[in-house]
C-alpha cells in the first residue's frame, strides 16, 4: 500500500464514528443517494424484458453445415407453414435445435446427428442428391415409411423410426412453442406457471460428487427393453 493511501484509509476509519454520531444526534436527512431498498417497493415499476432469442441469433456450434442444411429441409417438410401459421423454419427451430441438441446427453446428440447423416445418405443413394435439395414428393417417399403411432414417453425404439418420429414430435413442439407462432391470432403458444429456481442453485456445490463414477455391477442384459431416450 502506498503511504498516501494508508493515510487516507486511517483518516476514513477515524471519520466514520463522528459521522454516525452526527446523524443520530441531530436527525439529519440521510446522505444521498437514498438507500435503494426504500425506492424498491411493490409500486415501483419493474423493467420489462424479452427472451434473448427474440432479438438475437444464437451462435451455431453443434451441427455441421451439411447436417444443418438437412435439418432445415427436414423441419420444413415435417412442420411446414399451414395457412397463416408459421412453419418450423420461420420459427427458427433448426437454430434452436443446434443449441438444444448440442447441450443434450450423448444419446440424444447421437440420435440427431446420426439420423441426419442417415437420411442424407438415403437421399444420395436414391436420388443422387443431398436431402436438402429434395422436393416434397421425394422427401415424402423417404420419410413416410418410417412414421409410427405411439403413446407418451414411448417413442418407437426401432432404428430410423426412432429418429424420424422423435424429431417430428420435438420439431413440432419447438415450433408451436415459438414466439413466431404466438404472433398469429388463431394460434396460441402454450403457457403455464413458470417456477423460478426456488433457492440459490447448488449445482456448483454438488459438482464434485457428480463426477464420481457410479458404482454398478455387471448383470445380464434384460429381455424386456425399457424406454431409454435421455432428454
Amino acid at each position: 500500500m502506498l503511504r498516501r493511501d494508508f493515510v487516507r484509509a486511517v483518516m476514513a476509519v477515524a471519520a466514520v464514528p463522528r459521522l454516525l454520531f452526527a446523524q443520530k444526534g441531530a436527525q439529519l436527512p440521510l446522505p444521498a443517494p437514498t438507500p435503494w431498498t426504500q425506492g424498491l417497493n411493490p409500486k415501483t415499476p419493474v423493467p420489462r424484458t424479452v427472451a434473448a432469442e427474440i432479438v438475437a441469433d444464437g451462435e451455431l456450434k453443434f451441427f455441421s453445415t451439411q447436417q444443418m442444411a438437412t435439418l432445415s429441409r427436414l423441419s420444413d417438410v415435417l412442420v411446414p407453414a399451414i395457412g397463416n401459421k408459421p412453419g418450423a423454419v420461420a420459427a427458427e427451430t433448426p437454430a434452436f435445435f443446434d443449441f438444444l441438441i448440442g447441450t443434450s446427453p450423448e444419446a440424444r446428440k447421437k440420435l440427431y446427428a446420426g439420423g441426419l447423416m442417415w437420411i442424407d445418405a438415403e437421399s444420395v443413394k436414391k436420388y443422387k442428391m443431398p436431402f436438402a435439395k429434395l422436393n416434397d414428393e421425394q422427401a415424402d417417399a423417404l420419410l413416410k415409411p418410417w412414421l409410427r403411432t405411439w403413446m407418451n414417453d414411448h417413442p418407437p425404439t426401432e432404428p430410423h423410426a426412432d429418429f424420424i418420429n422423435i424429431a417430428h414430435d420435438e420439431i413440432r413442439t419447438a415450433t408451436v412453442n415459438s414466439k413466431a407462432w404466438s404472433l398469429v391470432a388463431e394460434a396460441r403458444t402454450p403457457s403455464g406457471l413458470y417456477w423460478y429456481p426456488i433457492e440459490p442453485d447448488l449445482r456448483s456445490v454438488s459438482a464434485a460428487s457428480a463426477h464420481v463414477q457410479p458404482h454398478v455391477q455387471a448383470v445380464p442384459k434384460i429381455s424386456h427393453p425399457m424406454p431409454t431416450y435421455p432428454r
Partner: peptide, 16 residues
Amino acid sequence: PKPAYDLPYRGFKQPG
C-alpha cells in the same frame, strides 16, 4: 405465468 417462448428452452426442460 409465462408463455413457452419466454423460457430458456422453449418449454423443453434443461437437457440432461
